[in-house]
Design a protein around this nucleic acid. Structure first.
Length: 493
RNA sequence: GCUCCCAUCGUCUAGUGGCCUAGGACACAGCCCUUUCAAGGCUGCGGCGCGGAUUCGAAUUCCGCUGGGAGCGCCA
């Protein structure tokens, strides 16, 4: 393990059984950052040893999600590398080779127990409040017995012969020494009856062969780590450094699941979160620089990330904070960038055409600055800009046109006066509009809000909108005056 | 049930024996700005789970308890 010039090699090893989960993305990120921060190698390895749970497009999603977040891999699918193949399903010959060593040395044995027997065993253990686990029924079968069972056509699994006594200890980079009594471990399976390796076995063979120096994975792996350590020992290999990252919990304290909102990277993407915010948020979930600074780009993280600053306790996923961060990042983008990123959402809502026409894009570029600071997710763009594109505003509740403490007549007067003034106005710049409308307020002897609100509702169809002058300026004379006229007529009934 | 991990504001966290009358951020409340909504600024609210021990002195060290989480598959 230390024979690769001291170069750090880490891997992210997802199984293609579903879309990339946010917890997996965080694990990937920490591995990636650790590699990048230390001039190491980041490897993507696909743990596809369970044919029954294989999900067709999950590999594609995992790779796309990593790319979307800005992570690249030095070795793995599409990247290649000298320690391949990087799909475990293509490495069966290797597991085969090493399992024979274990069988020969007596560290592993064949087990012919049926799943029915195992199931019954577990049920019995549960009924008696005993810890579940294999009862080592086949641990000491003779060769003759094995042959007999084999002749019956029974496909055995291969189990690891866990030492009955002693303690297995490993050093966790985050938590220090962790030990387990071997007697609490059971003889876990290394090779399934279909000939595929289990995670435990494939994992250590590959990590060793791929010269992985640091294993950084979720905390849920701590209980299986002693098994891995025992395996390394039986193989005569030196285990890599271990660091178990804290898990991400839901607001309710349990595992993060669909019930709590988005959980896969794809879902966050679809909801309009931007990768810069996701990465920053994920990094902060379990890592911090000094407790003060918390805005980091991927590039910056890669320079300041250290394992020492990773916390041990699990963290609750806060959608509120993510939302805030997303808004922060959206506000920091250029107008062109925001427009570009909002485009798919606007096209999906049929607000602009696909492909977008030049004049639509030019118009959009004028609109974006007005909504940029109001945008929390890109997916909100359609509802924020739709009125700019409507031919005519539909007032679902015409009474909203009338400010409180004013009546219909006065409101009509305001709308009419505004219409006249704006019809004659030739300077639709904000600077030109402002004195005009403020002057209107003064001449009507009303308060600013009383005059502006009816105009706002008339031209936008809503009571909350971007600034009035900016909006009118972008809308232009034709749209503005026709909307004022329309609102006036609605009020007249 | 057994094993393991964890434990500072509601949430994410700073803190590595005295700098802590515990700092920052999100959320929340109030105020300011203001044509609405945002954004922004200011202020406030709010925490070291409990009990022992060590020490001149503990959020910081040790032990116990409690609480939370994870694991215990021919899944990873």
């Amino acid at each position: 393990m230390k024979d690769n010039n001291g170069k750090i090699r880490v891997r992210f090893a997802p199984s293609p059984t579903g879309y990339l989960h946010i917890g997996g993305a965080r694990t990937a990120l920490f591995n990636w950052l650790f590699a990048r921060a230390n001039g190491g190698t980041f490897i993507l390895r696909i743990e596809d040893t369970d044919r029954s749970r294989y999900v067709e497009d999950s590999l594609y999603d995992i790779m796309k999600s990593l790319e979307w977040l800005g992570m690249d891999w030095d070795e793995g699918p599409e990247a290649g590398g000298e320690y391949g193949p990087y799909f475990q399903s293509e490495r069966l010959h290797l597991y085969n080779e090493y399992i024979n060593k274990l069988l020969d040395s007596g560290d592993a044995y064949k087990c012919y127990c049926s799943s029915e027997r195992l199931k019954a065993l577990r049920a019995e253990q549960a009924a008696n409040s005993l810890p579940p686990g294999y009862d080592r029924h086949c641990r000491n079968l003779t060769l003759e017995e094995c042959n007999k069972l084999e002749a019956e056509g029974i496909k055995p699994v291969i189990r690891f012969k866990v030492p009955l006594h002693g303690t297995t200890t490993f050093n966790d980079l985050l938590r220090g020494e962790v030990s387990f009594e071997n007697k609490t471990l059971d003889d876990f399976i290394l090779i399934k009856s279909d000939g595929y390796p289990t995670y435990h076995f494939a994992n250590i063979v590959d990590d060793h062969l791929m010269k992985i120096t640091h294993v950084m994975r979720g905390e849920e792996w701590i209980p299986s780590t002693p098994k891995h350590i025992l395996l390394y020992k039986a193989m005569g290999w030196e285990p890599p450094e271990m660091a178990h990252l804290p898990v991400i919990l839901s607001q309710q304290g349990g595992k993060l699941s669909k019930r709590h909102g988005a959980t896969t990277v794809k879902e966050f993407h679809a909801k309009g979160y931007i990768p810069e915010a996701m990465v920053n948020f994920l990094a902060l979930l379990g890592w911090n620089l000094d407790g003060e600074r918390e805005l980091f780009t991927l590039q910056e993280l890669k320079e300041v990330f250290t394992l020492e600053r990773v916390s041990k306790s699990s963290a609750i996923f806060s959608y509120e904070k993510l939302d805030w961060l997303n808004g922060m990042y959206i506000r920091s983008l250029t107008v062109e960038d925001v427009a570009k990123r909002c485009l798919p959402y606007l096209q999906k809502a049929s607000i602009v055409s696909k492909p977008i026409k030049d004049e639509e894009y030019a118009y959009l570029l004028r609109i974006i600055p007005l909504i940029q600071e109001r945008l929390k997710f890109l997916s909100e763009a359609p509802e924020l800009v739709d009125f700019f594109f409507q031919d005519q505003i539909v007032y679902e509740d015409p009474t909203l046109l009338i400010p409180k403490k004013l009546d219909k007549e006065t409101t009509s007067k305001i709308l009419h006066a505004a219409y006249n003034v704006l019809l004659e106005c030739d300077d639709y710049s904000e600077a030109g509009l402002e004195p005009l409308l403020r002057g209107l307020t003064a001449s009507l002897g009303l308060k600013t809000g009383q005059v502006f609100m009816p105009i706002r509702v008339a031209i936008t169809g809503r009571t909350a909108s971007p600034g009035l002058f900016e909006t009118i300026s972008v809308l232009g004379k034709e749209r503005t005056t026709s909307r004022l006229k329309g609102a006036f007529e609605v009020l007249q009934g």
